[in-house]
């Protein structure tokens, strides 16, 4: 009963942060601020939904001693790690390419990169 509650709480945290990420993607005014919303919020939300699967797999493994649930937990954990690291690097690559392409941060207080390579 407690573990079911933990899984449900993880899933609710994950989906609410994913929802906030997509809302930020739709509401923010320019590319860089949109990227803030998608990178942080969707990575965090997907980590929590995957963590619920890890908890579920470990629970069933200690409940039934069937090794397929161990496989489930380990592989969900690896998928979570792959997701977290690739998202950060991918967003960095898109931001760098966008600035080289000539997209300026449109509401901006200051832009030091503009002075560095115009």
């Amino acid at each position: 009963m407690i573990i079911e509650g933990v899984i449900l709480i993880f899933l609710l945290i994950g989906t609410s942060f994913n929802t906030l990420g997509v809302l930020g993607l739709l509401r923010f005014p320019d590319l860089y601020t949109r990227m803030h919303a998608t990178t942080k919020a969707t990575t965090f939300g997907s980590i929590f939904t995957s963590l619920s699967v890890v908890v579920y797999g470990l629970w069933l493994f200690f409940d039934s001693k069937d090794s397929q649930f161990m496989v489930l937990a380990i592989h969900a954990f690896i998928a979570m790690l792959a997701l977290a690291f690739t998202n950060a690097v991918g967003s960095h690559a898109i931001a760098r390419a966008a600035h080289r392409m000539g997209i300026k941060p449109s509401p901006a207080i200051c832009d030091r990169l503009e002075e560095f390579h115009p």
């Binding site: 994913n18 998608t38 997907s46 991918g90 392409m101 997209i103």
Partner: peptide, 17 residues
């Protein structure tokens, strides 16, 4: 185009989840 790339990246993340 960069906005579209960000949107595709978001769709990919949600697909994996």
């Amino acid at each position: 185009p960069a906005d579209r790339a960000v949107a595709v990246d978001t769709v990919n993340t949600l697909t994996v989840a």
